[in-house]
Design a binder for these strands. Structure first.
Length: 278
DNA sequence: AAACCGGCCAACCGCACGCAT
DNA sequence: CATGCGTGCGGTTGGCCGGTT
């Protein structure tokens, strides 16, 4: 098939933006608003690719950007969001007003990665380096051990403590694809952080595949197109995506492994992403 | 003062996705 | 349903800058 290039590369500038280019871009967007990036360079009199203009605006020129160092609170929030979302920088950025995905990505790679490594945690999995895989279907003893490891991951000596609280308003009887829960909150040093994740049932079916009593403390979070299952704070019970989809007891279904009251927070990713809890 | 080195960050590149036709 | 277009996203690169030798 092949794609046409996003712009005529032969006649575009590359590299660092000049003040004049910045001014032109700002002036144009102030006058006409964002959007239509492909035609913007020509209209604004810029010898730049549309993508380049968009990037420059979003990452640097936008007036609502918060410049300066990341705060400790932002640090912690990024770590927690990364544990949930992985390298979904744009989603993480959406939870940090004034920060861009690029900024957070850079900050992660240069600061937080090192910080986690200092804690002895794998920056990608948020698990102890050299630790075992998260919650495979295993014997009860193995599960207990893994859950203990999980708690260690969530509560390293120097790491902030947090827990996820699913509200009780999670009902599947809403009759609407909007949420099991209204929100999720993390305790950070005793302070609650409302992540305000968009929570919803898998859109095609609202009927739980397992008894509803076990669903009361569980939340299904829909982030983009991906659904995540989140356990309740006290481990009163949880359901996984597999159960919701009717694949309970399948190999991918690991909800048997999450009955410990000690598990503060876990989630399930779609199987294709590894299907591992955190 | 010059060379070297490592960290940081803006920008680029390629791919994926959603939408229109 | 297939195709093309516009846009957004995530990984990577390259240049700048400050610190060290």
């Amino acid at each position: 098939m092949g794609r046409s290039p996003c712009c005529e590369k032969a006649h575009t500038n590359k590299g660092a933006w000049t003040k004049e280019e910045d001014q032109r871009l700002i002036a144009y967007i102030k006058a006409h608003g964002e959007g239509c990036w492909r035609s913007l360079p020509k209209a604004a009199g810029l010898l730049r690719c549309g993508k380049s203009c968009r990037l420059r605006w979003i990452n640097y020129l936008r007036p609502d950007l918060k410049r300066g160092n990341f705060t400790e609170e932002e640090d912690e929030l990024i770590i927690k969001l990364h544990a949930i979302l992985g390298n979904k920088w744009s989603l993480i950025a959406g939870r940090l007003p004034g920060r861009t995905d690029n900024e957070i990505k850079n900050y992660w790679n240069t600061h937080i990665k090192r910080k986690l490594l200092g804690w002895g945690l794998d920056p990608q999995t948020h698990r102890p380096i050299g630790g075992s895989a998260a919650f495979p279907v295993a014997s009860q003893q193995q599960q207990q051990q893994q859950q203990a490891e999980c708690n260690n991951v969530l509560l390293p000596a120097q790491a902030p403590t947090f827990s996820c609280k699913a509200t009780a308003a999670d009902s599947a009887d809403e009759g609407h694809s909007s949420g099991l829960v209204d929100d999720e909150r993390y305790d950070v040093h005793g302070q609650e952080l409302n992540l305000d994740l968009s929570i919803s049932l898998p859109h095609h079916s609202l009927k739980p595949a397992i008894p509803t009593a076990t669903t009361t403390a569980a939340a299904a979070a829909t982030i983009g197109e991906e659904s995540y299952m989140v356990t309740g704070a006290a481990g009163k019970g949880a359901i996984c995506l597999c159960c919701h989809l009717g694949f309970q007891n399948s190999e991918a279904c690991s909800c048997q492994a999450i009955q410990s009251p000690h598990v503060l927070f876990r989630y399930y990713r779609p199987e294709e992403e590894g299907g591992q809890g955190v």
